[in-house]
Amino acid sequence: MGAAVATHWAARARRFEVNAATREPAWVKGSLITIALAFFGLFLLLPLVTVFAEAFRKGWQVYFAALVEPDALSAIALTLLVAAIAVPLNLVFGIAAAWAIAKFDFRGKQLLTTLIDLPFSVSPVIAGLIFVLLFGAQGWFGPWLIEHDVKIIFAVPGLVLATIFVTFPFVARELIPLMEAQGREEEEAAIVLGASGWQTFWRVTLPSIKWGLLYGVILCNARAMGEFGAVSVVSGHIRGRTNTLPLQVEILYNEYNFAAAFAVASLLALLALLTLVVKSLVEWRGRQPLNVGQESQGVSA
């Protein structure tokens, strides 16, 4: 149905364009398109091109040398590790939160919904500081942690915590409207038919949200790998130990090692492009099941 509506609107939009009575004068169209394209080129396309141009300015050898340098490799590994921990956790938290908010009524639901958005509204630097204040040497739990020889701040656990905090809303935000729109009827039908809660979740709830879930995970992952502010505060910038890719870029840049900085940055840019491609694929695939039956709709009861 969604696709049918989409084509319907596309057809209507075309009709507005073809029909002289609703068409705007050429100069209006021209200037609007020019402004839009100029903006797009200047603020989106040019920076992207610049990243790759700067990265390859000194040639392939320098580019690859910058990427296989031990500190860069460790930054890549660390970034992947942080994402590999943070994303699955937020996947579970996100589903649990969305499930609770969308399918049940309880006291404090509004508060929970607002809290989920907190990481979006708080500056990432503040987010990082929260963890320093909690787990740092001078923080609330600092003395206890030192006593038990647990390192969180300026170590990998701190990076993971900060990343989880910052990327928390992505999955839940994606799922809540979807699950609310789907309502509870299918779950009710499943339970009446004798399914247990677990069966209902795996067989009914999860399949109907899988594309939205994947979409949320992709966004969550992109942010987890690209996060700078919060991670910067808790990292301590120990080369080869607590530097993720974005932090590595900053260090290299501050050392005037532009080619290497841009080479590493190009990895993040590639990740962003890849994310966009996968995201479009998911969106397209997510619409498929609804697409299938358009031609055979006519069969009557």
Binding site: E186, A189, V192, L193, R203
Partner: peptide, 26 residues
Amino acid sequence: VGFVFQHYALFRHMTVFDNVAFGLRV
């Protein structure tokens, strides 16, 4: 009990066959 909903509440990601088989499979 068997319950029939006003808006059908069929499992949209399952075929007709799987919908009918659901109650037996769970």
